[in-house]
């Protein structure tokens, strides 16, 4: 598939064209950047670093109905995800798209999650490169990612300054190219070459890093190491690091019933919460924040790579930047390496 050129002036028209689908872009709510469905292309806020809440919530909503029921009636009325319709996420960052490709492995593993997978099937991801790292705490390049990364994306828009290089990457991307054909021009041959030198430049601007080699194997041997107490002493036990993580995917399911009408809903859960894995007996195998922090790190850097051959962290840096007490996953990993 050949790369095309998309002039930045035409982005408004492109968004207008795409609004025939369920169109989701970064938007500004006060000073906070979030992904939301937009009705008017003017709502899109594309001059951003990265969003506070990752776009995983589009394919894995924080709360979703699985089915509805009426008390006394055995019939379950299942949610039809298809009704949500074709969805386009426009302008997400490569790390967040790569996160979805990582989470796909879990939701299509021993049990195929129909809700998640249907939504993924319906969704086309149009990503935008990071010319500048959105945060000082970005470290995607340590984890096989790149500010110009293509994993998980259907189209990559390479920011060339006054225009984008439009690179379709999948079948969905090719269909997107067809949809937008009238707005695209042929790319100049120099652009593709320039894009790869720009990628090297962008990678060079990322200042934080970790060498993940060997961490997956080492973590289980540090189960009782005093480092876990040390790194979690200041932890407040809130859900910021997990809820804002683009790869965290734990969920809970609860029935909500009112006047005989109910639904089974699933909602994000967090291994940092005190009632996570709390047994009915009152016993909790992870009774304190020490065990919970150990679980968060081990899940991402040991359990997940052992099962799926990929670390469940993309180096977006959100958990570092937004932690109220500056618990820093890179510092923890360094201590793991040194222990």
């Amino acid at each position: 598939m050949a790369a095309k050129k998309l002039s930045k002036e035409k982005v408004g028209e492109v968004l207008q064209e795409l609004s025939k689908f369920r169109l989701i872009t970064p938007v500004k709510s006060d000073d906070v950047v979030l992904f939301r469905e937009i009705a008017d292309p003017k709502e899109a806020f594309l001059e951003y670093g990265n969003s506070t809440v990752p776009p995983k919530k589009v394919v894995f909503p924080q709360t979703e109905t699985l089915f509805r029921f009426t008390i006394g009636n055995p019939e379950l009325r299942e949610k039809n995800v298809e009704e949500e319709g074709t969805t386009v996420i426009f302008g997400l960052r490569p790390c967040d798209a790569r996160a979805m490709s990582i989470v796909d492995k879990l939701f299509s593993w021993d049990y195929e999650d129909p809700y998640y997978l249907k939504r993924r099937e319906l969704t086309t991801l149009v990503g935008m490169t990071c010319v500048q790292p959105p945060s000082i705490n970005c470290f995607c390049t340590s984890l096989q990612g790149s500010p110009f990364g293509k994993d998980g994306l259907d189209v990559l828009l390479v920011d060339m300054g006054d225009h984008f290089l439009f690179q379709p990457l999948t079948e969905k991307g090719a269909r997107m190219e067809e949809t937008l054909a009238s707005y695209l021009e042929d790319a100049s041959p120099g652009d593709v070459e320039r894009a790869s030198s720009m990628e090297e430049e962008a990678k060079g601007k990322i200042v934080r890093s970790i060498d993940p080699q060997g961490i997956a194997e080492k973590l289980p041997s540090l189960w009782e190491d005093p480092l876990w107490k040390r790194v979690s002493d200041a932890c407040l036990g809130c859900g910021i690091c997990t809820f804002l993580c683009p790869t965290c995917h734990c969920f809970d399911m609860q029935d909500e019933v009112e006047r005989g009408e109910g639904r089974r809903a699933r909602m994000w859960d967090s291994c940092m919460f005190c009632e996570y894995t709390l047994h009915a007996s009152g016993h909790n195998p992870r009774p304190t924040r020490k065990e919970r922090t150990r679980n968060r790190i081990s899940h991402k850097y040991s359990y997940y790579p052992k099962r799926f051959d990929v670390i469940a962290c993309v180096g977006c840096g959100r958990c570092i930047s937004l932690c109220p007490v500056n618990i820093d996953i890179l510092e923890i990993l360094e201590q793991v390496v040194e222990a």
Partner: peptide, 28 residues
């Protein structure tokens, strides 16, 4: 409504609060 619609219920506001120390919080 605009502010509350952004809330992700991470409960960091509760957990960081020195006055939120109930052993059994109604939120849990």
């Amino acid at each position: 409504e605009e502010k509350f619609s952004r809330c992700i219920r991470c409960y960091s506001c509760r957990n960081v609060c020195p006055m939120c120390y109930c052993n059994d919080c109604i939120l849990d």
